[in-house]
């Protein structure tokens, strides 16, 4: 069994690799769409701007959708969560994957941008991947934009940074976080452990 990390050339993936390795996720990288074949779980990390992420990710688009529809557990992280939406204020005109309808918007100017640091979760629904995580547990965020889903029932957790920020979304076999579980200490590792467990079912 293996968890495949989509490497679409957007920077440092060692952290997520090391964290998945630590929780026995047996990670490997996918450099091409066919590398996703046989994956028991897929992680879509994200670094950099929405537009450049999407242009690099576009060649994986069809393969990712196929695996998503086949029920392969998927985890999006940070910009890897934002690309699930239709579009982003960061790069108007760049189309996202559109798996979750809604828009990615900029944090208001009244708060510190980027939001950088540890903030607490407010859990909106008891999904399995959040087993062992409680309201108020803190996770590490670094971002200037956040997703606003049309259908709020996909929101799994929020955090308060002057406005209510979508911190995690869930849809079928997909889970995605705005925060970085791989940089969020033991609680972050707990989420990754739960994800690995889901891939083993």
């Amino acid at each position: 069994m293996a968890i495949v990390i989509v490497d679409y050339g957007m920077g440092n993936l060692f952290s997520i690799y090391n964290a998945l390795d630590y929780v026995s996720g047996n990670p490997r990288f996918a450099h091409d769409p066919q590398d996703l074949n046989g994956a028991d779980g897929i992680v879509v990390p994200g670094v950099g701007a929405f537009g450049s992420c999407m242009s690099q990710l576009s060649r994986f688009k069809d393969s990712l959708l196929e695996h998503f529809q086949d029920g392969v557990p998927m985890l999006g992280i940070c910009v890897g969560m934002q690309v699930l939406f239709d579009e982003s204020e960061e790069n108007p005109g760049a189309a996202g994957l559109g798996w979750i309808s809604g828009k990615v918007v900029r944090l208001p100017d009244s708060v510190m941008i980027p939001q950088m640091g540890w903030n607490s979760l407010s859990i909106k629904q008891p999904v399995e991947i959040l087993n062992g995580i409680s309201d108020g547990d803190m996770f590490y965020f670094v971002h200037s934009y956040y997703g606003q889903p049309v259908d709020s029932s996909v929101i799994a957790a929020t955090t308060d940074h002057g406005v209510e920020v979508t911190a995690a979304v869930t849809k079928d076999n997909l889970f995605a976080t705005q925060f970085h579980p791989e940089k969020s200490g033991p609680k972050g590792l707990k989420i990754l452990k739960n994800f690995v467990r889901a891939t083993q079912c």
């Binding site: 920077g11 440092n12 090391n18 390795d21 630590y22 791989e182 200490g185």
Partner: peptide, 27 residues
């Protein structure tokens, strides 16, 4: 970075993008 899962910052003697890249690539 294999067993410490919080942000790591590194400084001292970094004077180019290339040198920064080496440090980022290390984790």
């Amino acid at each position: 970075s294999r067993s410490v899962f919080v942000p790591l910052a590194v400084g001292g003697g970094i004077s180019s993008v290339e040198q920064a890249r080496e440090v980022f690539n290390a984790g």
